[in-house]
Amino acid sequence: MTTARWRVFAHDGKAVLTDLVFPGPGNLATSVYADGGSATILSLSVAAVR
């Protein structure tokens, strides 16, 4: 993976975060967590970006 695009929607789309991530060589994993609270992932999609 050379580039990853993150798109996060929260509060029924009222809050949106889009970011590009440039991981180092050999980094194929990622993690998701809530800082200072809890969160529920209702939907998760992973697709190759070409």
Rank of each mutant, 00 (worst) to 15 (best):
M1G: 04
M1S: 04
M1H: 07
T2G: 09
T2I: 10
T2R: 03
T2V: 04
T2K: 00
T3D: 12
T3L: 13
T3Y: 06
A4Q: 01
R5G: 03
R5V: 08
R5N: 11
R5F: 14
W6D: 08
R7G: 05
R7E: 10
R7Y: 14
V8M: 13
V8D: 05
V8Y: 05
V8W: 03
F9S: 14
F9E: 13
F9W: 14
F9N: 07
A10V: 06
A10D: 11
A10E: 11
A10L: 11
H11A: 15
H11E: 15
H11T: 12
D12V: 06
D12K: 13
D12C: 08
D12L: 03
D12A: 12
A15V: 13
A15W: 07
V16S: 03
V16M: 03
V16Q: 06
L17M: 08
T18E: 15
T18C: 12
T18P: 02
T18W: 00
T18H: 09
D19Q: 13
V21I: 11
V21L: 10
F22E: 12
P23A: 07
G24A: 14
G24M: 09
P25W: 14
P25L: 13
P25A: 15
P25H: 12
G26C: 01
G26A: 09
N27W: 07
N27Y: 15
N27K: 12
L28V: 06
A29I: 00
A29N: 02
A29D: 10
A29F: 10
A29W: 03
T30L: 13
T30Q: 05
S31N: 08
S31H: 11
S31A: 15
V32D: 02
V32N: 02
Y33Q: 15
Y33P: 02
Y33D: 14
A34Q: 03
A34D: 05
D35H: 10
D35S: 11
D35A: 13
G36T: 01
G37Y: 00
G37M: 03
G37H: 03
G37W: 04
S38P: 00
A39C: 12
A39W: 11
T40K: 00
T40E: 09
T40F: 09
I41P: 01
I41M: 08
I41W: 07
I41R: 00
I41G: 04
I41H: 06
L42A: 13
L42P: 01
L42I: 00
L42S: 14
S43A: 02
S43W: 02
L44G: 03
L44C: 05
S45A: 10
S45M: 08
S45E: 08
V46H: 09
A48C: 05
A48R: 15
A48Y: 10
A48S: 12
A48T: 14
V49G: 13
V49L: 10
V49D: 13
R50M: 11
R50W: 02
